[in-house]
Simulated assay, not measured.
Amino acid sequence: MTTPTSGALVLFSGGQDSTTCVAWALQRYERVETIGFDYGQRHAIEMTVRPAVLAQIRAQSADWARKLGEDHVIDLSLIGKISDTALTSNVEIAMLENGLPNTFVPGRNLLFMMVAATLAYRRGLDVLVGGMCETDFSGYPDCRDDTMKALQVTLNLGMATRLKVETPLMWIDKADSWALAESLGGSALVDLIRTGTHTCYLGERGALHDWGYGCGTCPACALRANGYAQYRQRKISGVTNDA
């Protein structure tokens, strides 16, 4: 249901989850803007595909084209300068002694949300939308629901606002994320996500798999590929899950 009095700012990386979140927001809010962050990420190709993905989203629906407003790109290269991870340097992806993969960038989502809240304040937007998920993820603590709820409280206390943080993918798996995209934009949106977005941690876009571009072996590709296979199997079996 559209909420005409609300405007949303979507954290949009150019990947599968955030593209689904853009469509989700466009179905609910009369005004939607997007924000992306250049933080020295190894898979910087995601920043390259963003404009084309947004253009294709606009082309899918006149209503979406009307609602989808300005895109903002923020330089957060300081993250790459102060972190030592597999997403910000050319090192092999591995598990650390603390049980987290070295693709975890400490503080990244916290800083993303804080900067997005600052921009939303200036732009008169009262909803932040992020693709965080703790059902089917790599274990990042800044993707958890408790983190997002605590952050919402902190942002509102610190800015004297009533900003709402929405995470529509929090409790669904990757198969249901594909199904959610289909429910929002049909096969056209699913095809856009498959062929237009970028999720691979290594920035590989040489081969187009049935689930999209990627190396096929990094954790992000594995999650996406497994989710797509389950999504296709559920469709064949006639099984649907409410997202």
Rank of each mutant, 00 (worst) to 15 (best):
T5K: 13
S6F: 05
V10T: 05
V10W: 13
L11M: 13
G15P: 12
D17K: 06
C21R: 03
V22P: 03
L26N: 09
Q27M: 06
F37Y: 14
Y39R: 03
H43N: 09
H43L: 06
A44I: 12
E46R: 08
M47L: 15
A59P: 02
S61Q: 02
D63C: 06
H72V: 14
V73P: 04
D75I: 04
L76Q: 10
S77T: 15
L78F: 15
I79Q: 07
K81L: 14
L87Y: 02
T88D: 08
N90K: 06
A94K: 15
E97A: 13
T103S: 02
F104R: 01
V105C: 01
F112T: 00
T118L: 12
A120K: 11
Y121E: 14
G124N: 08
V127F: 02
V127A: 02
L128G: 07
G130Q: 10
C133K: 00
E134G: 00
D136F: 03
P141N: 07
C143D: 01
K149H: 01
K149G: 00
A150K: 01
L151V: 05
Q152N: 01
N156W: 05
G158Q: 08
M159S: 14
W171Q: 05
K174A: 12
L180G: 01
E182Q: 12
S187E: 15
A188I: 10
V190D: 09
R194T: 10
T197L: 14
T197V: 11
R205N: 11
T217M: 10
L223Q: 08
L223T: 04
G238N: 02
D242R: 03
A243D: 07
